[in-house]
């Protein structure tokens, strides 16, 4: 007998679900990805610590591309639209996503920003995530690739301390390299750490200040754009670059 209202016996049943808890975010990310692929836009989820130089890197990217690439961006920020304003001044049409207390962007926020967009046709769309080496890594936004900015001042052991973030990365940009002569930083130690957390470790040393390495970064973007076109022409072979993670 039910001990609350006497409505009769209750039966215990087990419902097997075996679904990712973030399946709702994954579905929205897949929707975003379909938008990007249909428009032929390379979407980059740019992540990194606060102050790792994400915005400065995008400003340098705009300078170095010299208008040859049509760039757009959304910038996630807890409290201000400063990064988006900087990018707009640098010639990258941008929109701020002010997250309030949320420490990461999710696919729904990016989707809302996409539908409220000041840009036209684009070659590369940067999703500048909230500065944070933890939370952004687990939310698929629909990007074609994840890029992590790591400043030389952050410490050589950052990759092995934050393996979830770096395992997600398709590319690491080692930023502020103009400071290397003034620091006791062993770049080889950073590379060794990356090799232990990234299955295909790829790192480019850059300086937004001097422009060092920005050409290599633009070449990487060009290669990813070319791969995007190949995939768009062969949809049967297409697979999300960062789809839902392994479900055990």
């Amino acid at each position: 007998m039910c001990d609350t209202c006497g409505c009769g016996d209750r039966e215990l049943v087990a419902v097997e679900v075996h679904e990712r808890i973030l399946a709702g975010n994954d579905a929205m990310a897949a929707h975003n990805r379909a938008h990007f692929v249909a428009e032929g836009v390379l979407a980059i989820n740019l992540m990194g610590s606060p102050g790792s130089g994400k915005t400065a890197l995008l400003e340098a990217t705009a300078r170095a591309s010299g208008g040859r690439l049509r760039l757009g961006a959304v910038s996630g920020d807890l409290a201000t639209d400063r990064d988006a304003a900087r990018l707009n001044r640098a010639g990258i049409p941008s929109r701020a996503i002010t997250t309030g207390s949320a420490c990461h962007l999710d696919a729904k926020m990016v989707h809302a920003a996409l539908h409220d967009a000041p840009w036209g046709a684009l070659d590369v769309f940067f999703i500048e995530n909230v500065g944070n080496l933890v939370c952004p890594a687990i939310y698929d936004l629909g990007q074609a690739a994840c890029v992590v900015a790591l400043a030389v001042t952050e410490g050589e052991d950052k990759p092995i301390k934050y393996p979830v973030m770096f395992k997600t990365a398709d590319l690491v940009l080692l930023t502020k390299c103009d400071l290397l002569p003034h620091l006791e930083v062993d770049v080889a130690a950073i590379e060794d750490g990356l090799a232990r957390v990234m299955p295909v470790p790829r790192m480019i040393q850059v300086s937004a200040r001097t422009g060092e390495g920005v050409d290599a970064w633009l070449a990487w973007l060009a290669a990813r754009r070319a791969a995007l076109k190949v995939r768009a022409q062969a949809p049967a072979l297409d697979a999300p670059a960062r789809g839902p993670a392994h479900v055990g």
Partner: peptide, 29 residues
């Protein structure tokens, strides 16, 4: 994360789960 024998990039086979596996419910009979 490279295979020491054949040099291929390793693959994560377990450890990235955020999964709801099962719910135990008490249903009215």
């Amino acid at each position: 994360l490279q295979c020491p024998v054949c040099g291929r990039p390793a693959r994560l086979t377990a450890g990235d789960e955020i999964v709801l596996e099962r719910i135990e419910l008490e249903v009215p009979d």
